[in-house]
Measured scan of single mutants.
Amino acid sequence: LQAFIKTLTGKTFTVEMEPSDTIENLKAKIQDKEGIPPDQQRLIFAGKQLEDGRTLSDYNIQKESTLHLVL
């Protein structure tokens, strides 16, 4: 599935991932794409901060969901 990552500066980019991917995997993909170390990334979806060990499906993240990236 493709999801949108929106930063506080208003920049939006897309990442490809599977519902079974962990938040940790997602942070690694963001690092590959944007060069931001995972330990500096905080991802917010539906008002909740996402925990590394959980999966996208745990948070009911669907295709074309928008996640907010806070540094």
Rank of each mutant, 00 (worst) to 15 (best):
A3D: 02
A3M: 15
I5L: 03
I5W: 02
I5N: 02
K6L: 10
K6V: 14
K6W: 07
K6M: 12
T7M: 15
T7Y: 14
L8P: 14
L8M: 14
F13E: 00
T14Q: 08
T14A: 10
V15D: 00
V15Y: 03
E16D: 11
E16C: 11
M17L: 13
M17K: 00
M17P: 01
E18H: 14
P19Y: 13
P19T: 09
P19K: 07
P19S: 11
S20R: 08
S20D: 12
S20I: 05
T22L: 08
I23C: 01
I23T: 04
I23M: 03
E24D: 07
E24P: 02
E24K: 13
E24Q: 12
L26Y: 00
L26K: 00
K27E: 00
K27F: 02
A28S: 10
A28C: 07
K29Q: 07
I30R: 00
Q31R: 13
K33Q: 13
K33L: 14
K33H: 12
E34N: 09
E34S: 15
E34K: 08
G35Y: 03
I36P: 03
I36Y: 15
P37V: 05
P37W: 05
P37L: 06
P38F: 14
Q40G: 05
Q41R: 01
Q41D: 00
R42G: 04
I44C: 12
I44S: 10
I44H: 10
A46T: 04
A46Y: 09
A46G: 11
G47K: 03
G47Y: 04
K48D: 06
Q49I: 15
Q49L: 15
Q49K: 08
L50G: 01
L50R: 00
E51S: 06
E51T: 05
D52T: 05
D52I: 05
G53D: 11
G53P: 06
G53Q: 10
R54F: 13
T55E: 03
T55C: 05
L56H: 01
S57K: 11
S57R: 11
D58V: 03
Y59G: 01
Y59R: 01
I61Q: 04
Q62T: 15
Q62G: 14
K63E: 12
K63S: 15
K63H: 15
E64Q: 10
S65T: 10
T66E: 09
T66Y: 08
L67V: 12
L67R: 01
L69I: 12
L69A: 01
L69D: 00
V70L: 14
L71G: 06
